[in-house]
Write a protein that binds this DNA or RNA. Structure first.
Lengths: 345, 345
DNA sequence: TTGTCTCCCGTGGGGAGACAA
DNA sequence: TTGTCTCCCCACGGGAGACAA
């Protein structure tokens, strides 16, 4: 069954804010975001790094803009900002989760109440499966781990010779998907058959990508994905030029600080680290990474195991000529074993 | 043959500026743009309407931003600008043609030489076919009008019982496509068979869309499309917020005028009319459209015949509260026959 | 327990002429 | 001249158990 026809008629982005669904949708968003996502909460204070923001725009437009812009940048290297509000969203075409964060220039007058979300925690049950080559082949059958199928899926009528049921699930776009859930083969195992290929095709899933199922307390099923390899999405400059986009980032922030009004930034769990929680930042600063320091970092492994790499700091250099000696600096690390990666404190 | 695998690895946008290919590629761009496209030339002076630019961004982001921004807009309603340079481009996913125009704030000191392109005009031969239901059906055969096939395609070996040849063509992205060209059926006719469906699928063509073939003087074949129904592409706000985009448009222009440097705008032949050739604008102003005036306009018909509509002006109102009584104003027209549309002078 | 293979069958897509507007 | 239909055939995709890691 092809459920993907009306994807284009959906509102482009889903704001997960409506009452009843809010909590379970938020849970799904977090699982899709992955274990390394460190989203701030409304009311919390963060540091906003304009440079990081600009770099993301550069990368997204495949243009190097910072140097051209040099004379016009007149921003501090980091700006302390309370978080006004957060909208959890998901990119329409790729299902990449991101958040739109409204930030306020830091003024002691404005007090944003920290949202109290400790009271409402319905039970949710979920599982994540890394798709195998067979799962994503043209044969179109998803093999479900027995434990997860029993825990999260409605029970099958095992008195039947071939127990079968139809499961209707929703993704974060509120699109509906139908999977035929059967228990067959020798030995018997839980499978998604009809409907699975359509899902794989529509979401462009490949072996290694993660399939997520989440059951709400009322039994409703939600599905999500997390891709194995993260690809930054390159936005076309066919509406506004890359030049405009960079101007926009800077102008929005400058305007916000001049008129003391909020500005909006996009937080991508797997890309943008230019919005950092205040206490995380303070913690990081305590570790003065200097030459010869041992260095450890968590990193998304290819299979989403939270790999930890460690190495020795062999250099400290300024990241950009625009902001000298700022705390967001590049460390050159000699890794103990594996692939180098550019970390920021 | 699936030629569309490497589309994503192409540079996102093609700049048609390289020497030998330049002229024929430019021709194809123009045919794809349609007969109503009125692109200025480098060196020519145009009027730039910030409001029109902002409206396009609004539409593209599906947000109404102008009202929120009111205090910050401090721009003239129209700005005279010489055109510094033009890059003809095509959107990667939709094949929509557009141009990136570099504009300079109008200063009498700078004289931009008008490019002389009258000397190099190689013969090109082209045809455009509106696709029928059969052309785009799963049967995957394009029926070629005999006259056009004879004029533009390499001659078939008619001594064969079923004359057949393979044609390798390129689109503006420089992607290669292969079509099997045969002459069969009773009565005999020219057809594209193998390879045609892949093209239709990849370009997401539907009945009514136009298929364009153009033959360069050296015999190379180029292909292009023009869609029947124009759809504005909605850019995702998953990289920068809509707020940033609007700020960017305004900031780019303000910055250009403050520092006397160029700024870049995107010209979409079928969407943006906020860059208007100077003399076209002057011509238009001569017609003072007032109450009761007869009004005529050219309009893209569904089949791309340049339909002309006419009617009576029944109202003149300011288009935006930001700019009073400007020349870019909305006319309310009572049409003689058909569908109303909102024109601007 | 679950990943991959192979077998089997039915659907549907591509390629051909028929026919008519 | 060319748009649409129908026919035919083969390839491929889905659904099933076999088998082994």
């Amino acid at each position: 069954m092809k459920n993907n026809e009306d994807i284009n008629s959906q509102p482009e982005l889903l704001s997960i804010i409506d009452g009843t669904k809010s909590y379970i949708y938020e849970q799904l968003w977090n699982i899709c975001a992955g274990p390394l996502c460190d989203l701030p909460k409304p009311g919390e204070k963060v540091y906003y790094f304009p440079q990081g923001h600009i770099e993301l725009v550069e990368t997204s437009t495949r243009e190097v803009l910072l140097d051209e812009m040099r004379p016009n940048i007149n921003l501090p290297s980091k700006l302390p900002c309370p978080v006004i509000s957060i909208q959890l969203k998901m990119e329409k075409n790729t299902d990449e989760v991101y958040a739109q964060i409204s930030l306020m220039p830091d003024t002691t007058e404005v007090v944003i109440p920290i949202t109290n979300d400790g009271n409402r925690k319905p039970m949710v049950c979920s599982f994540t499966k890394a798709l195998t080559a067979s799962d994503t082949s043209t044969h179109g059958v998803l093999s479900l781990p027995k434990k997860h199928a029993l825990e999260c899926l409605p029970p099958l009528d095992m008195s039947q010779p071939v127990p079968t049921q139809e499961l209707v699930v929703k993704d974060l776009h509120d699109n509906q998907w139908t999977f035929k859930h059967t228990f067959r083969g020798t030995p018997r195992r839980h499978l998604f058959t009809t409907g699975w290929t359509a899902f794989v095709t529509s979401k462009k899933l490949a072996a290694g990508d993660n399939f997520i199922i989440l059951k709400g307390e009322n039994g409703e099923l939600l599905v999500g994905i997390r891709r194995a390899k993260y690809e930054i999405d390159h936005i076309p400059s066919s509406v506004i030029s890359a030049q405009c986009m960079l101007h926009g980032v800077i102008a929005s922030v400058v305007n916000a600080f001049n008129t003391n009004c909020m500005f909006i930034v996009v937080y991508k769990p797997r890309a943008s680290q230019f919005v950092v929680r205040y206490d995380k930042f303070v913690d990081a600063l305590k570790n003065k990474f200097n030459f010869g320091s041992r260095f450890k970092m968590r990193c998304e492994g290819e299979d989403f195991s939270e790999k930890r790499y460690s190495g020795i700091v062999i250099g400290v250099k300024d990241f950009s000529p625009h902001w000298k000696n700022l705390e967001w600096r590049s460390l050159q690390v000699q890794w103990d074993e594996v692939s180098p990666q550019k970390p920021s404190s």
